[in-house]
Design a protein around this nucleic acid. Sequence first.
DNA 1: GAATGTTTAGCAATCG
DNA 2: CGATTGCTAAACATTC
Length: 452
Amino acid sequence: MPVLTSPEIASKFAGKWMDQTMSGPECAPQDDSLTSLHWLQNFSILSADPERTNTCGSIQQQQYLKRFGFPKGGSDSPSSPPAGDTAATGMPLYLGSPVMSGSDSSMTHRFTSCARNGFPPQDSPQVEVDYKTNHKVKPPYSYASLICMAMQASKQPKVTLSTIYNWITDNFCYYRHAEPSWQNSIRHNLSLNKCFKKVPRQKDEPGKGGFWQIDPQYADMFVNGIFKRRRMSANHYSNSANRQNKLGYPQNGCPYQTSKRKQLPNKNKATRAGESPLLATQALRGDFDLTSMFDDVLSGNCSTFEDLDINTALSSLGCDLEVSVQSRQGLGRWDQMMGQGQHLNHHQSYTGYVDVPTMECVMGNNNMVDLHHLHQQQIEQDHLLQNQHPHLQQYDEAAALFSERPEGAVLQPWEEIKEEEQPIPLTLDQSFGLCEGFFTEMQPWQNVEVYL
DNA sequence: GAATGTTTAGCAATCG
DNA sequence: CGATTGCTAAACATTC
């Protein structure tokens, strides 16, 4: 394992990687915008075949495949229904990794029967579950996931509640036969989950009820087939509240609309040590534990990567500019960076999604990646950092690459409503997604030589 | 009245 | 063991 300790090597590393991922006849057109979902326009969850995924064909696409629930291959990818997903617990026979079958158009998933700890046993037979016809098996998806799937499948900018109902009943036989109470849960989820945004019907528009769409701020919250749960550090809130006005986000960083929520006594513990609010521990666990990785990086413990100066390498990719500073400044972990926090009760933090956009900062012109707004109070240190990273210009170029929309690209539903809002930032989370793809592509780590 | 939307409450599983 | 998370149930309001 090579030891990368100099910024020059890391920069070279990043450059090679950029070259390999951004260039090439197949890759170039698709990798030009990490934030664009235009490829998704032609993507059907019913026809997705992650096993056929073009290995080159765009890390971006694979990234979104992964984000939107279509794990590569099967086996032990981090695609299992999250341990905390109680929907999965309703499917006792088929705990494991749902794999879309590309061979038929039904909602058929294969499940490798596996122990509850998520580790597939050896020689375990795969069990086919056709949710479209099997009414006995509850789909291993949370309601939020189902809603998002329905929204994606509809290919409409916005969908009605009945559309969601219909899609679910069309694709999951279980719900055709189930008591209608699940519809209540759907409505409950739509109302409470801030990831879903209600679009009121026009006054002259006939029909009942409004429309629903995925809030663009949370469009990246799919990971491995399910809604990406992100336990947040309570510290997040105090600081985010101080930042959000500037960024145009709600005062309360909680994705759940806390204004609708009863305030419960603050009886929780203080910060939960070791929790990274940015990374979905459960979701990322599997192929690669990015959470611990970044925590290690943040804490300055780069030995995790066998002396690979990942911090520097990531800096070269524009992924953690301030992160490395924080490491050096001894702040280390995210929750520590976030300062003192407050705590949310059960339904305040219902799903506990981190308001990622509150962590954004400007990378390049319009894209947001760095962490300036996280700690404006450390602006002097930022300046110091700027001096230490003369290759920052590379970030702008990369940002430009990511931000450009190909001609003729179709606007996504959430992009439409973005007209009145801030441009979709390349959030820190998305940048971590980039890094995640980066690391995925890099596995095994021995392949690092390729980029040198 | 039915459909839709909001809110509260409680339970159970999971995680650290 | 406490916190988190997702689900369920229910009451209530609003709209068509």
